[in-house]
Design a binder for these strands. Sequence first.
DNA 1: TTGTAGGCGTTATCAC
DNA 2: GTGATAACGCCTACAA
Lengths: 356, 356
Amino acid sequence: MVKKGIVRIKDIAEKAGVSTGTVDRVLHERGRVAEDVKQKVLEIAQELNYQPNMLARTLVNNRVYEIAALIPDPGQDIYWQAPKTGIEKAQTELAQFGVRVTQFIFDPYEAASFREKAGEVVAMGPDAILVAPIFYRESLTFFKKWKALEIPFALFNTHIPDYEPLIYIGQDSYQSGFLAAKLLHYGHPQGATFLVAHIDVDLSNSSHLVNKEQGFFDYFGQINSETPYSLLQADLHNSSSAAFYEQLDVLLQENPGVKGIFVTNSKAHTVAHYLQMRGITQIKVVGYDLMERNLHFLNKGLIEFLINQNPKGQGYWGIYGLADQLVFKKKVSPIKYLPLDIITKENLHYYIEADL
Amino acid sequence: MVKKGIVRIKDIAEKAGVSTGTVDRVLHERGRVAEDVKQKVLEIAQELNYQPNMLARTLVNNRVYEIAALIPDPGQDIYWQAPKTGIEKAQTELAQFGVRVTQFIFDPYEAASFREKAGEVVAMGPDAILVAPIFYRESLTFFKKWKALEIPFALFNTHIPDYEPLIYIGQDSYQSGFLAAKLLHYGHPQGATFLVAHIDVDLSNSSHLVNKEQGFFDYFGQINSETPYSLLQADLHNSSSAAFYEQLDVLLQENPGVKGIFVTNSKAHTVAHYLQMRGITQIKVVGYDLMERNLHFLNKGLIEFLINQNPKGQGYWGIYGLADQLVFKKKVSPIKYLPLDIITKENLHYYIEADL
DNA sequence: TTGTAGGCGTTATCAC
DNA sequence: GTGATAACGCCTACAA
């Protein structure tokens, strides 16, 4: 009550004529308190507007919380470096609160690898799990297990609402496709042909890419335009440059009206590279993610816009959300949609500098 | 060294064969320590990678820090509600760390009001000051005073580098104008006339608006386009709708090629309203800030893009930056440029939902 | 059912 | 110069 005007447990205790231990038991509902005392304490706490001091609470609680991070190997696909960095940033900040993060790295191109590492996670028995569930079918199996074991888990990058994850951190895929469509449309108000390109993916096991495509198509379904827009879809593979070029050559030859390409993952740079090689300048590219190779072509003007998924932030907030739950006992909202940041050459700088 | 693997002062003390008091004196450079002991302690701290526990530090230090927030009245211009909200959010979060924020609200249209409130701030003698220095000349006077009194101050919204503020939080005005130009250019690759509109401002005392205009002009200076772009500038006043409409009528009549309007502050809605009344649809509007009236026209398609200045975040980070300095003794970087968020109807949702 | 003592990591104050 | 010790607010034992 005195300095700072902060109400402490001790203040409540004094006013109620009991000890701090009793107040603590009431506040934490640990039982073993006479009913009338309990009511009195609660009343006074209310009246004094008691707010627990999180600093003191965290300081005294020296439990160690083990969090398992089940994430794809950045060595296989550099995109995954960013979430990994975000996870490690959160890890550093939270170390003094007793949060320990163990990484389990799987091959993003091998479902078997995912199964194996997810098995290791179960064997370890962590207090919570953060996972990028990029394999839909395989993920479901493990979600079921974790649910049975009552291990809370958070998802990032890909949302799979089955089995109710504690948190999802990432973007609304559908809406991001919708946005990409708007950006291409705005640059070509007079009608055009646009291509949706999936590159190096198993579409049947990647629901979020399908959602992006759906959003893209739906955008053009809902505009009322005098002029016509036609839309194409293609599933491309970049294993060899030559074959990749040929696929695009054929596509563009058969559809000379293509004015824009929407790449549904972080591989926009492959298309940009193709356009550069072929000397094509009138096709606008919209893609995802601020990776080195994409930025190169963004700055050269061969990619027009990138939608930032804030992958570093996804990892960071994923760990942080779990810690909020475990350590700080905060209630966390089950979905944290990160903004669909529109990045172009002129505002890029502030996003790569950003802390998260 | 034991549990949690966290290094404490006590661990350093044991390893160095001294007491915690001595280690503390070394770490805080309070002197009264033998040179050889000092070196040894520093060495060990380095080796063990000692990180002070901010919780314990803050807990023990129960000082109250008074921060004065000198901000414009949201009642006069609703734009200022957002920073105010951000300030209050930071205030709530930081209350338990002994941070107290007192607001001093001035009339954004009356320099005299600013002087008066700034005087009250000085009289109060706070530990730090957060200010939106929208009046250039008047601000300088007070910066000088605060500097003499050694009161650290942070700026937001408008950057005035004279007298070295501790922090500036806000955007790069020049670059935001540059970005606005890009957005209009992208929508009209075939050449057009664009108008830069300043609405209801005293341009001579608002350097950041001049910077925006400069960025806009410079963008078109650096593109190499076959087709010509012509640029206009206008200083408009919205005190009466009729007069405002007439100014625009004349402008657009004299310049029938106008295809886009860049409004340099949060008043884009006034232009959108005009366009709606006149039934003009082929002019694209780019403006600033996610205010209710702007959002209305963004959703109707009468404003194409808004650049978000994240005003809530400016207030929030402003207070937080000062607290980092005062309470947590962190070193803070003198400039925190917030990203130039590009907002359009399709990604708006995630920005208004955002926490800050 | 209740009260008390000790400790979390850091800092400030004393006595030596 | 140095080391012990008492706080800060909370929680967990254990004692009563």
